[in-house]
Design a protein around this nucleic acid. Structure first.
Lengths: 152, 152
DNA sequence: TACTGATAGTCAGCATACTGAGCAATATCG
DNA sequence: CGATATTGCTCAGTATGCTGACTATCAGTA
């Protein structure tokens, strides 16, 4: 029988599990309390001031029901603001706060370090190839999850 | 600024997200109600009759606090049994049931199909290379998560 | 303008994953 | 043998992710 550990789905789960653990360790040791998901959301809000939650979700491939809680926690930590949109009363405009900007700036070394650690078993060439293959596989399946990537 | 979508951690999350969605779709369309996590646990119980929960968790790199709920659901669905161990009264011996064996046998085509779909963007060579690189990266970080792989 | 459909957001419920704590039982060592 | 450490398991709490349902609002059209 085929071993679980030879199935791409199982490897995907395990790599993600390690990626999260490494991220939390590095960021935690740097003195910050931010999850990978919260980090990606905050960085995307900073890069797209005033965007609404659905757009934010699309840019990082989160489900719209997940983004609510993530933004809740960013707001609660004082890193982002959620305002009613003037043009569309259904939508919420998101903005990063000064504290959020400060956090992003200071947290960068820990985030970079985490990305390196999770690839420490691979050479530079292999790392690049892994990223390329993941990108390609993901692109071909983008529409198969409820939360596909929606680029600007 | 570096795009989130160029960070290995983000790609890991997205690939896992797609892998789960594809698995659930294929298995669901085949008429089964089993998650990827439950499938891996059930297959491992079948391959290692009478194993305890900690060993099971180690074989598939699950956290010990997660395995409790997973086994709960397998037992509740009638696919596995949880018995007190005679040798160690702390431990629970796990066994697959006949229904579990039947389910595993019938679900295999859907599981295989899911593994193929999530790699549909890659050639056979590329798929193999992706698996190799994931394996290598994971092996080098095995101890960095709370739930490392513990082989027999 | 009234109807219809689509969209933004939220909520309840379920299934992973983790932290940290705790209980019961076993193993080990002085 | 008895104190101590370790181990197997569970639980409470928190954070993703998802399904499906719901409200409020907007857009397009008859």
């Amino acid at each position: 029988m085929k071993d679980n550990n030879d199935m791409p789905g199982h490897l995907a789960r395990r790599f993600q599990q390690i990626a999260v653990a490494v991220f939390l360790t590095e960021v935690g040791e740097a003195g910050f309390d931010l999850t990978p998901v919260q980090y990606a959301a905050l960085a995307t809000i900073k890069a797209n001031p005033g965007l609404d939650q659905v757009t934010l979700a699309g840019l990082i491939a989160y489900d719209r029901t997940t983004i609510t809680g993530v933004v809740d926690r960013l707001v609660q930590k004082g890193l982002a603001e959620r305002r009613a949109s003037s043009r569309d009363r259904r939508a919420r405009e998101l903005e990063i706060t000064d504290a959020g900007r400060r956090t992003l700036r200071k947290i960068t070394p820990a985030v970079d370090s985490a990305q390196q650690i999770m690839l420490r078993g691979l050479s530079a060439k292999e790392s690049e190839e892994l990223m390329r293959l993941l990108h390609k596989a993901i692109a071909a399946c983008n529409e198969l999850s409820r939360a596909p990537l929606r680029e600007g």
